[in-house]
Design a protein around this nucleic acid. Structure first.
Length: 293
DNA sequence: GCGTCCAGGTCTACC
DNA sequence: GGTAGACCTGGACGC
């Protein structure tokens, strides 16, 4: 079954699909030869479905692994719009970038939409999986969660697990199977809180809280520090934080400081003039070379 | 083969 | 509020 979505004039499928590492973490998969982004979506009342997304001109084509009801098709379209940030208004950001010689490529290439998961919960768990470890271990942990706890689509691929599925597992599952190490109790506690309803992370998408207050709430989740909170904020559409980590620091040294080390304060000063967009400007700056044009 | 370092940081105790 | 030290894991590296 094929579904079609019109895309905004300033949207780039390639730039969005590879905007950061999520495309390489299950359930996401990417074929960069054919520029096909796929993943399994959880349809709650129905069996999960695998979607394969490609772009042509100003249109996305979504091929589903089986025929869907109208209700399920509407959810697939809503999830794809959410993941690819089709409803994000970046006019202010692009206007700002167009006036800067160094950053005029951003609107030209349609960079700035950061791929996200269908749920905040998935983004949050994955972000904790990126902390204090190699990318290979991040992949190992996420794969362990999906393969062991994900619901199966008709093609055998699996969803990202729900909070309920994660909550049902004992602590030793996260240490022995997921290989999460000291993060194991963090996952267990987060899943328990979300599954029980005592913490609603999906509500963060529409939170009326000021960013500082929202960060405080996010940091109430064990394993979420400044880096993880500010990166999740970017996926919520707030770009005040730089979300510095060892990778972005090293990249800044190369791209903006002639290979010399720079303090976090210096990095912050460099992007400070971009105000509420500074986190997104930094990320675009650091990933410009991810796509040959 | 073995020890050390560190990678897309965070938590806790202590000052 | 600021900071030192501990923390799982596993790949890379030097010896």
């Amino acid at each position: 079954m094929e579904l079609l979505i019109s895309t905004p004039r300033d949207f780039s499928f390639k730039r969005t699909a590879i905007s950061h590492g999520w495309y390489g973490l299950l359930p996401f998969e990417i074929d960069r030869d054919d520029w096909l982004l796929s993943r399994v979506l959880d349809l709650k009342d129905e069996k999960p479905v695998t979607v394969a997304i490609t772009a042509r001109k100003r249109q996305l084509r979504i091929n589903t692994s089986r025929r869907l009801s109208q209700k399920a098709a509407r959810q697939v379209i809503a999830d794809v719009r959410h993941m690819l940030r089709l409803d994000d208004d970046l006019a202010g950001f692009y206007g700002l970038m167009a006036r800067e010689n160094d950053f005029a490529w951003v609107p030209t290439q349609g960079a700035g939409r950061l791929l996200r998961s269908p749920t905040v919960f998935e983004d949050l768990v994955k972000m904790i999986c990126t902390t204090n470890c190699s990318w290979a271990l991040t992949e190992r942990m996420v794969t362990g969660l999906v393969q062991n706890l994900g619901r199966e689509s008709n093609d055998g691929r699996r969803t990202f697990p729900t909070p309920e599925a994660m909550s049902l597992m004992p602590l030793k599952f996260y240490t022995n199977e997921v290989r999460a190490g000291y993060r194991a109790p963090y996952f267990k506690e987060l899943a328990d809180r979300v599954a029980s309803g005592s913490l609603d992370v999906e509500q963060w998408l529409h939170s009326p809280l000021a960013t500082d207050e929202l960060i405080k709430e996010m940091r109430g989740v064990k394993g979420v520090g400044p880096y993880a909170a500010e990166n999740v904020l970017k996926l919520l559409g707030r770009y005040d934080g730089l979300a510095l980590d060892s990778w972005t620091r090293a990249k800044f040294f190369t791209v903006r400081n002639n290979g010399r080390k720079a303090s976090d304060k210096k990095i912050a000063r460099f992007y400070s003039r971009f105000n509420e967009w500074r986190g997104l400007v930094l990320w675009c700056d650091m990933t410009r070379d991810w796509l040959e044009v």
